[in-house]
């Protein structure tokens, strides 16, 4: 019985993660690849691994500034076909240990795998909130559950830490991760109070919880100069938020569907 609820979440999460991968390929991934051409220019001391990049990924090549041009598509295709993960040679990035994509997967396979894992994870979190709070997710309310998940995990944290492109200036990673996790947790708690609890006190407490991390303030970089063009950053922020909204709506709906089909099938 319990396993069936977890299974329903897994099915919905894997389905949403697969669709998310397709949605990312339309806009988000080309923008990431485009930004990586600028990453590690003069700001980074040594653009390590530049020699391993395919010619179309070299900085200074003849790219138009549209994310959907032929060059970006070629670069994307080269990224898939290349056995070496060319795009991870981040200039100026200090990794202590050897990186590389696990199991020798291609870049696309790695992204698909990570999307499936993240999809299953977010689906389990959403199902967990639903089960613990005793508010079932159905097809009828699934999109609203998904939208609430998107608010808590993406839009509200993005107020302080907008989705970043590779090469963007940013504060210390650990500080940002702590702020991000705290903001997701506070936003989720605040939305729970705001949406699912009755009474004025709960609504006010919910708003206070949601506002608290932003009053405290997200960690910001000391130096905000970047080689990556600002237009790419603006396009990417909108594209990332739009695709994650798509992901969460699909996730909420498919979780509602899976709940009704799988979890309650034996009743």
């Amino acid at each position: 019985m319990i396993v069936k609820y977890l299974l329903a979440a897994l099915v919905a999460g894997l389905f949403s993660g697969a669709l998310m991968t397709a949605a990312q390929e339309a806009r988000v991934i080309p923008l990431i690849l485009h930004a990586e051409e600028y990453e590690g220019g003069e700001a980074a001391p040594a653009p390590a691994g530049t020699e391993a990049q395919p010619p179309e990924a070299q900085p200074g090549s003849t790219h138009e500034h549209s994310a959907l041009d032929i060059g970006a598509v070629l670069s994307e295709v080269a990224g898939y076909l290349s056995p070496v993960s060319v795009a991870y040679a981040h200039g100026g990035e200090a990794h202590d240990d050897e990186g590389g994509i696990m199991f020798g997967m291609s870049r696309f396979s790695g992204t698909l795998f990570a999307n499936l894992v993240a999809g299953a994870g977010f689906a389990l979190l959403l199902a967990g909130v639903s089960l613990v709070s005793g508010n079932p997710i159905t097809v009828a309310n699934g999109a609203l559950w998904g939208a609430a998940g998107w608010l808590a995990v993406h839009l509200l944290p993005a107020i302080g830490l907008p989705p970043e492109l590779p090469g963007f200036p940013a504060a210390e990673l650990a500080d940002r991760q702590v702020w991000w996790m705290a903001t997701v947790a506070l936003s989720a708690g605040g939305l729970y109070l705001l949406i699912l609890m009755d009474g004025l006190a709960a609504k006010v407490a919910g708003i206070v919880l949601i506002a608290a991390p932003h009053v405290y303030g997200a960690p910001q970089p000391a130096d905000i100069t970047s080689n990556v063009p600002a237009v790419l950053g603006a396009e990417f922020a909108v594209a990332a938020l739009a695709t994650t909204l798509f992901f969460w709506i699909v996730l909420g709906l498919s979780l509602g569907f899976a709940n009704e089909k799988i979890a309650k099938a034996d009743r």
Binding site: Q24, S85, G99, R107, G110, T111, A114, P163
Partner: peptide, 9 residues
Amino acid sequence: DTAHDTRHA
């Protein structure tokens, strides 16, 4: 590295 693009997206 495996989840790089997913993390950004």
